[in-house]
Amino acid sequence: MMNTMTTETLVAIAVPLEAELVDRIRAIDPSVTVLYEPELLPPERFPADHSGDPDFKRTPGQEERYWAMLNQAQVLYGLPNESPAGLARIARENPRLQWVHAMAAGAGGAVKASGLDPETLSKFRVTTSAGVHALPLAEFAALGILNGFKRSAELARDQAARVWPELRTPTRLVNGSTLVVAGLGEIGLETARIARALGMKVSGTKRTVEPIEGIEKVSDNDGLAALLSTADAVVNTLPGTPYTEKLFSRDVFAAMKPGTVFVNVGRGTVVDEDALVEALDNGKVSYACLDVFAVEPLPQDSPLWSHPNVLVSPHTSALSAAENRLIAERFCSNLRTFLDGGDLPHLVDPVHFY
């Protein structure tokens, strides 16, 4: 679907954003009018707090103004109220809507949760901020690998107990070890780049199997278990879809070498967490660095909280002080493409929600 508008394009800012970044969007083209009323948007509690302060409440009049603003626009920056329900409402109420740019890299889950039918979803496009988060996620994955190889959890326990072990335990060399990346997309390839800089050999999975420079073996997800049989570490970057649900099953964990380091920066639903706990307990997984979980916030009764060889991160590894700027720059590039009638990148598949 090409943008056939020849006059004014209305862009509404639906989520918190700094005024100077809004000005960058305005500067893309004279035909662009940006609808931005910061008093209708919740204040950020930290950089890139796209949902804003949960205690923020609009008055009835402000709520009416917020939705009136969004319903004028052909393009939205952010999901309304940063929620699937907001996306569902704007899809029903705004017949002009052509494109929504989501803040998340994995916005397919929110689109699916909106409950919109395929016919409604076909009337507009949703793009994600995929790629913006690749570097911070890859750095976090490298942290997880190094933590596992260098026994950081054991060191922290000894330090807390003020124990100086009589017998020194060697650590493992990352250099020369083998990493498997489940999901060789932008995040996976950035993870592979950093891993290779550390001297690791990297293989991985991709939906379309094809040679990739610097990657030793490429398989689809059906071949994941075979790749893991020789891996020293594995990083999951896969999104949550019906096709990746509990991909890391008991059988897949059983295929790993004893002592494998496991890192998850993709989606929690890709992992059978009961199977992961079993793998941690039986030594197949020596250490797990987890930024995402099947249920978030992680339930208080989850054994992952207290497992001695698990690092729990509250789904924050992608955050950086530069995130708002990077997403706005991505949106500006996409907006130029939209105005020129080009193909928008990083579209959410309305069938597979990928």
Rank of each mutant, 00 (worst) to 15 (best):
Ala130Arg: 15
Leu121Pro: 09
Ser333Thr: 15
Phe331Ala: 01
Pro211Glu: 13
Tyr77Val: 09
Leu146Arg: 10
Leu238Tyr: 14
Thr7Tyr: 12
Asn94Gly: 01
Ala102Glu: 06
Met1Thr: 09
Thr128Ile: 08
Ser306Pro: 04
Phe331Val: 13
Thr59Asp: 01
Leu70Met: 02
Glu63Thr: 04
Trp67Glu: 08
Leu224Arg: 02
Val181His: 09
Glu93Asp: 14
Leu189Cys: 07
Val252Gln: 10
Leu335Gln: 10
Ala134Ser: 13
Ala182Phe: 08
Ser219Pro: 00
Arg58His: 01
Pro314Arg: 09
Gly52Trp: 05
Pro54Ala: 08
Gly223Cys: 12
Glu216Arg: 08
Leu155Tyr: 15
Phe248Glu: 11
Ile90Asn: 10
Tyr287His: 15
Pro170Asn: 07
Gly115Trp: 08
Leu21His: 11
Ala322Met: 12
Pro95Val: 00
Glu39Lys: 15
Phe293Met: 06
Leu21Trp: 12
Pro47His: 04
Asp251Glu: 15
Leu319Pro: 08
Glu186Gln: 13
Ile187Asp: 07
Thr260Asn: 05
Arg207Cys: 06
Thr205Asn: 03
Gly342Met: 12
Val174Ala: 14
Glu323Val: 11
Arg45Ile: 01
Met2Gly: 13
Ala275Gly: 13
Glu44Ala: 15
Arg96Cys: 06
Asn147Ala: 14
Gly61Phe: 00
Thr59Arg: 02
Glu216Asn: 04
Arg45Ala: 04
Ile25Ser: 10
Glu329Ala: 14
Val22Ile: 04
Met256Ala: 14
Thr171Lys: 09
Pro43Thr: 03
Gly342Glu: 10
Thr316Phe: 11
Gly148Asp: 02
Val174Met: 14
Ser51Asn: 05
Leu298Ala: 02
Pro118Arg: 11
Leu40Gly: 09
Leu247Gly: 07
Gly283Thr: 05
Leu76Lys: 00
Ile212Ala: 04
Ala294Phe: 08
Pro303Met: 01
Ala192Ile: 00
Glu213Ser: 13
Lys284Pro: 09
Ala294Leu: 12
Val126Pro: 01
Asp117Ser: 05
Asn147Gly: 12
Arg26Val: 01
Ala255Glu: 13
Val235Arg: 11
Asp49Tyr: 07
Phe46Gly: 00
Arg168Gly: 03
Leu304Val: 01
Phe46Leu: 02
Leu335Lys: 11
Met200Phe: 08
Phe253Thr: 04
Phe46Glu: 03
Ala110His: 07
Ala113Glu: 10
Gly61Ala: 06
Val11Cys: 08
Ala142Arg: 02
Met200Glu: 05
Ala102Gly: 15
Pro299Asp: 08
Gly61Gln: 10
Ile187Pro: 10
Ala156Gly: 00
Thr171Asp: 12
Met69His: 07
Lys206Asn: 09
Glu37Tyr: 02
Ile28Thr: 14
Leu339Pro: 02
Met200Thr: 11
Leu35Gly: 03
Ala19Pro: 01
Gly115Leu: 09
Lys257His: 03
Glu44Pro: 04
Pro38Ala: 04
Ile25Trp: 12
Leu97Thr: 06
Gly183Tyr: 15
Ile215Trp: 02
Tyr36Asn: 06
Val271Pro: 06
